[in-house]
Design a protein around this nucleic acid. Structure first.
Lengths: 243, 243
DNA sequence: AATAAGTTGCACATGCCTGTGCAAGATCGT
DNA sequence: ACGATCTTGCACAGGCATGTGCAACTTATT
């Protein structure tokens, strides 16, 4: 009934009937709402999340056994998308490639920020941290290659430099949410910030960004059309509290 | 008695006797402990803070009426120290001055980080934010002057650039606590990071730092001698739980 | 329309945290 | 040594959040 049994996975053992489709949509809405609110406050109450998703707190337990389960799901999705973005592009120059990575990360701002928020504290900080491990490794490798090829600064230990790159990128991502950066502005800013930290002077960085076709802003705004009842990715619900 | 009446301020109306000196020391220990733990978790319990200070939770209420009062006190002290550090040095070049500001901020890592933590969330985010206003303004002015004089990049709006500078500095400060950066390393890193964000190429930044006597690492480690029982500024107490 | 799948509201248990009252200490100041 | 000044432990109230059991109710599916 109201217990956690929403197994919307594979192998539907249709004993009597197929599960309702709107349930899955609501589940997605919950995850989206959680992601949105966890961005601002890693300790949001289920009440708030449910309200944002247009559901009642009680219903959440129909989809997730535990609050942590919800959060885990959010972080898993985030990790997946980031993992995709972290796959190295076929670019020779490590500098350009780093900028490219930053730009692709920018396309996933929301997810990246959620992950960053969750990494800081909480019971699953470790798990989430491990989920981001491939990203971190990618940055580290890129920096190492960049330093070896003489295209990046060597006055800071590569390990440390990699951390600073992360930090700079996150700064822009933060800036993106507090101010209202457009896609284009964010795209440019992350790259410039990262390149600056890595040692390039600002004119070279600007020229590089302008002249590298790989670093151009991709076309499609990722606003995917809704699949079910509640909007999954964009603004979840204009209504506020249910009371 | 046990209520909040520890008025250790000025104008001692010594009706019957002078207040005990260890009380003031404990108060300081509490603030120090709070600062230390708030760095890691803005939501630490009073229990934990009291334990860190070597006191019981109950005793805290002998010094502060509410938890928020304690936190407020911590933030006030932090703001004060940062305010001092933010006073512009008598340096003409805005670039050098920005680096100098970053370095002076580095000397106050602990305090800066506490403030940063508190700014993020919590009931007094606004207050704390205002306490940091002078710092922010200093950075903004420096950046504006730097851009106008052509010594800093002009491909990013000064306002935004100022934010990125803040972010980069905080990254180093974070790095400082997770890794164990020495004073010297941190000193150099903040400056290099900030200069990088602001548009300098890494060699110029390095030379600037090396050649500017104003940017040299000051001598004295700020471990001030204890005034009373518990150590006020440095490590508060090596003992753990009181139980 | 019938029925299972989801949802909701309420009540309740639990846990963690803050804040207080009070009595019994420990400790500094004189 | 005396006494005021802290400190402590315990008990208790209140608040907020999670998680659960039920009995309705609404809605998608067949």
């Amino acid at each position: 009934m109201s217990d956690a049994d929403a197994s919307v996975g594979a192998a539907p053992v249709r004993a009597t009937r197929a599960p309702r489709r709107d349930a899955a949509a609501n589940r997605d809405a919950l995850i989206a709402a959680a992601a949105l609110l966890l961005n601002r406050d890693p300790a949001v109450s289920l009440e708030a999340i449910a309200a944002e998703a247009g559901l009642s707190r009680r219903s959440v337990y129909g989809h997730f056994a535990t609050r942590d389960d919800l959060v885990r799901e959010v972080s898993l999705r985030g990790a997946a998308r980031i993992g995709v973005a972290a796959r190295p592009a076929p670019i020779a120059d490590p500098v350009v490639q780093l900028a490219s990575l930053a730009a692709r990360l920018w396309a996933e701002v929301e997810h990246v920020r959620v992950m960053a928020q969750l990494t800081v504290r909480g019971p699953m900080a470790h798990e989430v941290g491990e989920a981001l491990a491939p990203l971190r490794k990618a940055v580290r490798d890129l920096v190492r290659r960049g330093v070896e090829s003489g295209r990046m600064r060597d006055d800071i230990a590569p390990r440390t430099l990699a951390h600073l790159v992360e930090g700079a990128a996150l700064s822009v991502l933060d800036e993106a949410t507090t101010q209202r950066l457009s896609r284009a502005e964010g795209h440019r800013l992350v790259m410039l910030a990262v390149l600056g930290v890595v040692g390039l002077d600002w004119r070279s960085a600007g020229e590089l960004v302008a002249s590298s076709p790989e670093l151009a802003l991709p076309a499609a705004p990722p606003t995917s059309p809704p699949t079910g009842t509640a909007s999954p990715t964009g603004t979840p619900s204009p209504t506020g509290e249910p009371a």
